[in-house]
Design a protein around this nucleic acid. Structure first.
Length: 906
RNA sequence: GCGCGGUUAGCUCAGCUGGGAGAGCACAUGAUUGACGUUCAUGAGGUCACUGGUUCGAUCCCAGUACCGCGCACCA
């Protein structure tokens, strides 16, 4: 970065492309983001929510990584041993589906034709091919991740952690095999956990059928939303209290579609009010029916197979697709006269979260994690506030889920993932469960053992991410230093999938909460507020945005438009605003640098005590204080806005304008002080902004003649990352803290009078169309000696920015200028004589309006002050403030009234 | 059905512990030598969804209503 042209020689537009690549390279070469292990110094750790290894960056990742990077950069600059740990997830089922699709498209063999081993090898090939994509995209975001610690859920290290987790739970009896109804995806051919089923409201029908009694004495009417399941009916249930059917309980029905004889029985589960009050019971294909089947010893017949086809048990319907079968049954019912009616019915249909296929509940044997004992401490940690969730409302959602949790189905009939570490003995049927592959049965010693065919739910490994990435189950130095991690930042959409599971597994395996705070953010939607999706074709590619506006602009936009936990919309306009901000900073910096060319920082400036210098330092302090507080409170948006306002509205619009005359006059005794203030404040501002906009701040900072010292940990970072020496980077300087001596409320008060004075002149100039360049004469009549002194001190500023000709500052007297445009500010009346130019009727109208609004305001305040309740109960400072406001307004009112009277005389 | 969030300027949204209604964009008017037109200045624009309540005082707290969105649970 040393040989670059000087910033002042660069184009007047900020060109992100020109600096981003180079800057990222500089960071990479300098290894600034290697996390140092510094015993005695607090660590700060955030692990990335690992994206799918073969995934593509979307705006959600961009937001997520920006938020994380802001925190980590901030803490690094605060001297913490800061680690942003990157990595990717193997995303079992999702990746397997993708690879299968890819094979199909290229006309290759199917998964089953390949066989397990070859297929898994193919997926690894795929993984190697695409793994770099997402990393490369993340790098474009400028994240300060420590790539030396990058992890992948299928790394041997992390796979060992997965097995260790399984073994521990198994040995404690918290993992078991169960035969029960599970959610089965007929397309993906695997079981799913409850939360992998998404419910979609759909318009469908309620079909009413007539089931005749065997004895020919009548029939019973049942309603169903899934006629195809009736092939597996093994009973009809009614409510025991239902008088309509009590006499029928115990009788047999002849099933109209299968001819099977099935009993009518009573069960409390049945709701008398719904439908006909009779429920056909299909134990093999419905969880509630399964329970009733157990209670009443019903036969369980599988009529829908794993591919959603009707099994041979379906008789003449065997082999049909489940929906084709539905049509046929309804048609047959109609033809044969046992269809009663078809009602429209809207209900939620469970779909596979991966492929949207309607899930089929089917009885199967799967592995489960017994959740109750794990959920209890995990709920407690949040309930007791040991883990804080931001925003708080999600704690309730979390607790509700944790407190009503069902056992977790963890086996998947897929090949890509961690194979279940259970070996079955072919001789004694015993199970051997080990971290490292056993060679013989633990029970009988037989070597005839074979491993379970299934793989684990991908979230089973993600659950360990905060510590498996750091070396667990081994007691590594990293684990000791960086774990527990600090904050977990992710989207609220994976609160259950991931966050909740990390909490209970962290507590179970490490005895510690894996992090102390969870920050949840929302989704980025499109301009119309719709979710971005492939099918809608409304996806905005972050890389396109970066290409057009730059990374810093994207980061800034993502963070400013956002409140924690709320969704936000993506607008190109917003990115444009952020880009303009970057450009503004760039140009302000160019200005500063141009004017520092002859600055000798070795020559300390005399204490000028210049009001504007004092003021901007005061404002900088305030901004630094606010930003630090807001970041500590995870209010990124407010923090970013604070810096934006400081840079644009205060530093650029006012300070730079105010300081120009001092810079341009070589003889000005305060010139050196002005240069110094510019240099220091800009440098501090860059440090303040750096976590948000890392590229531009680094690029500018590198050009500054005076730079802050690095943080204490910087040497360690350099040393531990193998650097010969510590290179300079704003990212390892100290984050601004309010400086003692820079707080200066008096300067702030006085500057605000001067700013008001300038604004009053500008306003008059515009309103009376005095011309943008004409020098205008002005008379300030101060109402207090303090105001007089301030205006007098700020005379040069007012002359300059107000573009005045003759500027007269005096104490208020009866002798007010005639024929003048006027304004009233706190502390003074302002007059600009404009001869006969005043449009009297128009001015009278304007004053009349102004008097109206002031009177209304004064009336309100006086009403308050006359209210005894207010005087008795309001805080003294509020009363005081109200009094002051009322007095000031009355004064203003008197001035305006006086002027009105004067004008009327003309 | 239960729970949660939203409703503030034309648009998108901020507003921390009750006392000032705000920003960006858009709009209107003016400005072209001197950091930046990706700029500057000035201005217009709001019953803070509605109804009650608490309070000296409510955009903010409480209760309810309406509409929008989300989550969880579902009765075939």
């Amino acid at each position: 970065m040393v040989d670059e042209p000087k910033l002042t020689e660069l184009a007047s537009k900020y060109d992100p492309k020109a600096v981003e690549e180079e800057t990222y390279q500089y960071w990479t070469d300098g290894k600034f983001y290697h996390a140092p292990v510094v015993p005695g110094t607090p660590s700060y750790t955030i692990v990335i929510p690992p994206p799918n290894v073969t995934g593509v960056l979307h705006l959600g990742h961009a937001l997520n990584n920006t938020m994380i990077d802001i925190m980590v950069r901030w803490k690094r600059m605060r001297g913490f041993g800061a680690l942003y740990l990157p990595g990717t997830d193997h995303a079992g089922l999702a990746t397997q589906i993708k690879v299968e699709q890819d094979l199909r498209k290229s006309g290759g063999p199917t998964r089953h034709e390949l066989g397990r081993e070859k297929f898994v090898a193919k997926v690894w090939e795929w993984k190697h091919k695409y793994a770099g994509t997402i990393d490369g995209q993340l790098k474009k975001l400028g994240v300060s991740t420590d790539w030396s610690r990058e992890a992948f859920t299928m790394d041997e290290r992390l796979s060992k952690a997965v097995r260790a987790f399984f073994v521990q739970l198994y040995k404690k009896g918290l993992i078991y095999q169960g035969t029960r109804i599970t959610n089965w995806c007929p397309k993906d051919q695997t079981a799913l956990s409850d939360i992998e089923v998404e419910y979609d409201e759909r318009d469908s029908h309620l079909w009413h059928f007539r089931y005749p009694l065997v004895d020919g004495t009548g029939y019973i009417e049942v309603a169903t939303t899934r006629p195809e399941t009736m092939l597996g009916d093994t009973g009809v249930a009614v409510n025991p209290e239902d008088e309509r059917y009590q006499a029928l309980v115990g009788k047999m029905l002849k099933h109209p579609a299968t001819g099977r004889e099935i009993p009518i029985f009573a069960d409390d589960y049945v709701d008398k009010e719904f439908g006909t009050g009779c429920v056909k019971v299909t134990p093999f294909h419905d969880p509630n029916d399964f329970d009733m089947g157990l209670r009443h010893n019903l036969e369980m017949i599988q009529v829908i197979g794993l591919k959603g086809e009707i099994t041979p048990a379906g008789g003449k319907y065997a082999g049909l697709d489940r929906y084709e079968c539905r049509k046929r049954i309804v048609a047959d019912a109609e033809a044969e006269g046992w269809l009663v009616k078809i009602e429209p019915h809207r209900h939620a249909v469970g779909c596979c979260a991966r492929c949207e296929t309607v899930v089929e509940p089917i009885i199967s044997r799967q592995w489960y994690v017994k959740m109750a004992p794990l959920a209890e401490p995990a709920a407690k940690a949040v309930r007791d506030g040991e883990i804080k969730i931001v925003p708080e409302r999600f704690a309730k959602v979390y607790l509700h889920w944790m407190e009503n949790i069902q056992d977790w189905c963890i086996s998947r009939q897929i090949w890509w993932g961690h194979r279940i570490p259970v070996w079955y003995c072919d001789e004694c049927n015993g199970q051997t469960v080990e971290i490292e592959s056993p060679t013989k049965c633990a029970h009988c010693g037989s070597e005839k053992i074979h491993q379970d065919e299934d793989a684990l739910d991908t979230w089973f490994s993600s659950a360990l991410w905060p510590f498996s990435t750091l070396g667990w189950p081994d007691k590594t130095p990293d684990l000791g230093y960086f774990y527990p991690t600090d904050v977990l930042i992710t989207g609220y959409d994976i609160l259950f999938f991931w966050v909740a599971r990390m909490i209970f597994s962290g507590i179970e395996l490490t005895g510690k909460n894996p992090f102390h705070t969870v920050v949840l953010h929302g989704l980025i939607r499109d301009e119309k507020g719709r979710k971005m999706s492939k099918s809608l074709g409304n996806i905005v590619d972050p890389l396109d945005v970066i290409d057009k506006y730059g990374t810093d602009a994207l980061r800034f936009m993502l963070v400013t438009g956002t409140t924690p936990g709320n969704d936000s919309r993506f607008y190109a306009d917003k990115v444009e605003a952020a880009r303009n901000f970057a450009n503004k900073l760039w140009n302000a910096s160019r200005f500063v640098l141009m004017n520092l060319a002859d600055w000798n920082e070795e020559t300390p400036a005399e204490e000028s005590g210049n009001l504007t210098d004092r003021w901007i330092k005061h404002r900088f302090n305030a901004a630094a204080r606010d930003v630090d507080r807001l970041l500590a409170d995870y209010q990124y948006g407010e923090a970013a806005r604070t810096i934006y306002d400081f840079i644009w509205s205060e530093f650029c619009d006012w300070y730079i304008e105010l300081v120009k005359p001092r810079l341009y006059n070589q003889e000005d005794p305060t010139r050196q002080a002005a240069q110094e203030t510019l240099a220091i404040v800009l440098e501090g501002t860059l440090r303040l902004l750096h976590p948000f906009m890392p590229y531009i701040t680094e690029a500018i900072w590198q050009k500054l003649p005076a730079q802050s010292q690095p943080v204490d940990t910087a040497e360690e970072i350099a040393k531990q990352s193998g650097q010969a020496e510590l290179n300079p980077s704003v990212s390892v300087t100290r984050f601004p803290e309010p400086l003692a001596g820079w707080d200066d409320p008096e300067a702030a008060t006085r500057m605000s009078l001067i700013i008001d004075a300038v604004k009053a002149l500008r306003s008059i100039r515009a309103e009376f169309r005095l011309g943008e360049h004409a020098k205008i004469d002005a008379v300030f009549m101060a109402t207090t000696p303090e105001a007089f002194a301030t205006l007098d001190e700020g005379r040069a500023f007012i002359e300059n920015l107000g573009k005045t000709g003759t500027l007269s500052i005096e104490m208020l007297s009866q002798e007010k200028p005639q024929n003048a445009a006027a304004a009233v500010i706190a502390g003074a009346e302002v007059y600009v004589p404009i001869g006969g130019l005043i449009d009297v009727p128009k001015e009278l109208e304007r004053l009349g309006k102004e008097i109206g609004t002031i009177e209304a305001e004064v009336g309100k305040l006086k009403g308050k002050l006359a209210n005894e309740g207010f005087l008795a109960k309001a805080k003294p400072e509020v009363i005081e403030k109200t009094k002051e406001e009322a007095a000031a307004l009355e004064e203003k009112l008197a001035s305006v009234n006086g002027r009105l009277a004067m004008l009327k005389k003309l």
